[in-house]
Computed example of a mutant assay.
Amino acid sequence: MSLDRASKLTPQPWTDIFTNDTCIDRRQCRRTVPMKILALGVGRTGTASIRAALQRLGYIETYHMMSASVENPPDCLMWHDALCAKYDGVGKFGRAEWDQLLGNCQAVCDWPACAFAKELVEAYPNAKVILNTRDVDSWHESVKRTVYWRAKDPEHYLASKVSWAASMYYPMLNKFFDTFFRGDFLNEGKQVYLDHLEEVRSLVPPENLLEYRVSDGWGPLCKFLGDDVPEEPFPRVNDISNFKARCSKRNRRQMMNAAFQAAAYGGTVFATGLIAISFLQRYFF
């Protein structure tokens, strides 16, 4: 029996005016372009820069966690179903489901996709594979201060109780940490990272695999993909300060959406409380 969260997608409230989320039901989608690149390194290894670089090289839609977290939140329901299928044995998630979720993409990177290295390599055997890496210690510290913080952020938890978008993203993000990192990122994270590198290397023939650091820039990436090197510098995006500022801003806007929804349906006291919390957190914390 499948939990099938994706089938329980609710319409986006018309009162969500402070964010720019879309509400695309991927279950109704199919593959429209071939999958060409699987960047299977874990997040915080330059994946936002890789996404920007691949899109500059002309690859149509490079999927990234931001595709689900801030662009089309309903994707989180399908990712949650995929995590349950892989780690809990609940339901199924195969080529048909991957084509629904990723059908408009020629490339994929970041988490939660990295948790499905084996599944994605099997689903798209003709895709080239990039294993993006960085020093394990600096990576662990970066994750602890960004995505792990996001998963445990009390403000994000509050938003998940009242926001249409956060109610899908927050549970999926925590499910990812509880499964991929064996329920203990702080103590198990570094070993999981190293084990993941070995798994990807074991899945892909050397001629189809590029081990890559974003500090290497355009050269090895373009050579591996057979693309011309662009004239502009390699993109550098998503540092720690930008990450936290962006997440905090999104929390506030989601709570403002919820407050507007409550006010629109008569919950004036509740709405006032949410607005007060949002402003207090903005200016005093």
Rank of each mutant, 00 (worst) to 15 (best):
T45A: 08
R44A: 04
S67K: 02
D88F: 06
D81I: 06
T62N: 09
W79Y: 15
Y63C: 05
Y59D: 11
A52Y: 10
E61R: 15
M65Q: 02
T47N: 13
E71T: 06
Q55L: 04
T62R: 03
C84S: 13
E71W: 03
G41Q: 10
A68M: 09
L57P: 14
A85S: 13
D75H: 09
L54Q: 13
L54W: 13
E61S: 14
M78G: 10
G58T: 10
C76D: 02
S67Q: 01
L57D: 11
K86T: 06
A39V: 02
E71V: 08
A39M: 02
L83Y: 12
D81N: 10
R56V: 12
H80L: 15
G41C: 11
R56H: 11
C76I: 00
Y87A: 05
P73L: 01
Y59E: 10
A85P: 12
L83Q: 11
W79M: 05
R95K: 06
K86M: 04
D81F: 08
A82H: 06
G58L: 06
C76K: 01
A52W: 09
H64I: 00
P73G: 06
L77S: 12
A68E: 07
I60S: 10
A53I: 04
D75V: 03
I50V: 15
A85F: 11
S67N: 04
C76Q: 00
T62A: 07
N72I: 01
W79Q: 07
T62S: 11
P73Q: 02
F93R: 09
M65V: 03
G91R: 05
R56W: 09
G43P: 07
A52R: 12
G94I: 00
L83N: 12
